[in-house]
Design a protein around this nucleic acid. Sequence first.
DNA 1: ACCGCCGGGTGCC
DNA 2: ACCGCCGGGTGCC
Length: 922
Amino acid sequence: SFDPSLSRKNSEAIKTTKILLVIYRNYSHYTSHDFYSQFGLEDVICTDDIPGTDEDTDSAVLFGTLRGNVVGLRYYTGVVNNNEMVALQREPNNLYDKNAVKVNNVSGNQVGHIKKELAAPLAYIMDNKLAIVEGVVPYGAKNAFTMPVQMSFWGKEENKQAVLDKLKVHGFKLAPLSKSSEFGFGSSWVSGRAGPSYSAPGHAAVQMTTEQLKSEFDKLFEDLKEDDKTHEMEEAEAVGTPLLPHQKQALAWMVSRENSKELPLFWEEKNNFYYNTLTNFAEKERPENALGGILADDMGLGKTLATIALILTNFHDGKPLPVENIKRDQLYKVRGVFFVFVFSKAEKPKYTVSSDSEESEEWLPQQTRSNVTFVFSGTASVQSVKKNYSEERPRTTLIICPLSVLSNWIDQFEQHIRPDVHLNIYIYYGPDRSKDPAFLSKQDVVLTTYNILASDYGSRGLLHRLKWLRVVLDEGHTIRNPNAQQTKAALNLEAQRRWILTGTPIQNSLKDLWSLLSFLKLKPFTDREWWHRTIQRPVMLGEQGGLRRLQSLIKNITLRRTKTSKIKGKPVLELPERKVFIQHVTLTEEERKIYRSVKNEGKAAISRYFNEGTVLAHYADVLGVLLRLRQLCCHPHLCTNTSSSSCDSTPEELREKLVNKMKLVLSSGSDEECAICLDSLNLPVITHCAHVFCKPCICEVIQSEQPNAKCPLCRNELRVEHLVEYPLEESESSIEKGDREWISSSKINALMHALIDLRKQNPAVKCLIVSQFTTFLSLIETPLKESGFVFTRLNGSMTQKKRVQAIQSFQDSHTGSPTIMLLSLKAGGVGLNLTAASRVFLMDPAWNPAAEDQCFDRCHRLGQKQDVVITKFIVKNSVEENMLKIQNKKRELAAGAFASKKLTASEVKQTKINEIKTLIDL
DNA sequence: ACCGCCGGGTGCC
DNA sequence: ACCGCCGGGTGCC
């Protein structure tokens, strides 16, 4: 499998010194977090530095417990059971007592108040966040006026004394932590099962070590395969592409989830009541099962196709979208309702709704105003149903995806729906998008992006006013951060069925899971407190029961297969091989000279930061130095000298400098994410301390930290009026193009040599040429034209239409179609399909090996028929080689047993410092 | 009796 | 609340 063309010649340009064969492994759990871990920013970003994030509940310990009283029961409707969990909630605006503390049951109905004498110290403790106070009503739930409540106080060790003192002043004392302090669950009336136990830390019957826990956690999603999910289902006729066996499994599972009549997990029916076995909450109303789930298949297994098949197959009431057309003369009017009856075999027409349509009886009487069209077969079974849905019975599937995969969805719909089937699909995107709710709700499918979703939420726009039949979040892990705007926006959508598609289900934290569960409307986890008390904390404390619950929960709502999963003994996907070669390039003496001088200058600056201990504060500058070096490895013209910083300048100069820095960071290929929402930048702004965030994110931080807001990355002062916005679309063209004469570079020579060689062997083979620098791609265009290559190009900045055109022409197999695509590394999202290419030339290494892998997967995926050969050009003795070292270290770490062992803040810092040192040879 | 005791009215915060 | 608390009625043995 060694490609001789790469080393055959010993030309002047390519001084190939060594070729390495890297065997492909799956690094899919490598994520964009990596950038932050690389620079040790995770601890700064992910913990309590940002207001509104989880109150560092992971490190909370139990201070003790206290018995108190709930009073005023007769004024409220909320009821509880014995042993039921209750939520304590401050009510600072209470007219009678500013210390008031409400007591709510699991579904949020108020039960009463904490007696005022106790509320006084509680209010202090809660307001100052000294402890989290949780309650359970041990008995007396049926009392008329007051009932007892057993309270547990959880907090950071350093706050324990303050809590004890405050309680003491008011004459209260926490019970010592003894075994007997396990409260409540022993006498649970929930029969049959062993009730859950929430024991105090240190007293868990079998406590797991952090390592055990970690490995169990990693296995969570791997143990999901087989058992009940092997059932296959034939796709509806309307699906134009035959499904593979594993896709039929996915379809069967998704349809069964949507049509499920079962109680959700952790609920039981008893005495006409429905009991939640985790919280002991009960209600008369049957809790709705989450009609949906998480499809967490590896990328390339066809999540998109499975979803399309789901839409068509479970189109309405468990029936598929009909393929045949309805004839007009079969229309009958009955009491203002339009029915179409198609009787194929029956002797007599029936003017009743078929009993097969279980729900018709219940809804028809109220629905007589809407126009309904039914198609029945004579055997009284419904063959197909089509009707104008009323607002209460929405028909529309809303699909939300990153912009980069929007076109992929459109393609896939076109590709996989039979041409004679009519499906209304509307792309809700762009300034001219429809403002008409009636129009939108008449669509079968509405496609939009997370950014549109987020801005729609802010303005309470159409997406949030309509009721949807189904909402699908593609790349759904984008809602893992509960504070991000798009997460809130997604959680607030109204829909009957909800799906999350993701290839990376859990990053490395349980916390990530909560947003997903909350989106799925899984009772009672929509409220973070119940999730935290019943699952997250028990798991964190190493309790077996907690992990068991988590496992069954994940198992219940998730389907995940990897590329290596097997179905009936055969791999789910048989992809051609994929080989990665590293081709070393040696710079010419002239290039080396420039490189060396920039490096020495940058090295001096960075050593100074090290000596001053201000590396993090000069974060953008460090990146800038590294960026310039990486650019010089590619081509001397890439490095436009964005001068190093000097202090104190006029506001205008400062502004310009900041804009330049922002451009630097945005084009560095390493940091296109916002440190707050951890997602791609939405309206990027730069702070005076030169850190880039989404404007909405940072504004929220500033808002909530009033009046002394600090930068989440470096703790410098922040002001809204100091934020500098990214200037609108002047980009690209301004970066010098025609004003310098074109020259080649060692890397371009190496590339051209390989391309020409390849063309000699097989003129039809298609290649991707990938770089993080779009200017570099532009420079490469010149020799491509000179050598007569037909090529196309895909940039992040291209309009949707142009992207589609570029992709289509490249995927075209006719002679004369482009054989080369110039691709910016981050241009295509995960869904981008470039299977026409079987060769990839990666012109410059990325910080994050996962970003590279993702890029390779755009051609090494379902539909690829040939082996994929990837060539990475790496300049000898340069920052690129050092980047490889770090990439390899990361891969080892990710693959090793201690995978993502939590590092302490100082360990992370040290790692970061070492990495910067490695990168610049310090 | 500027007390005690009785029994009715009453009741979250 | 089959409590506590309040405040009015009442008052030797």
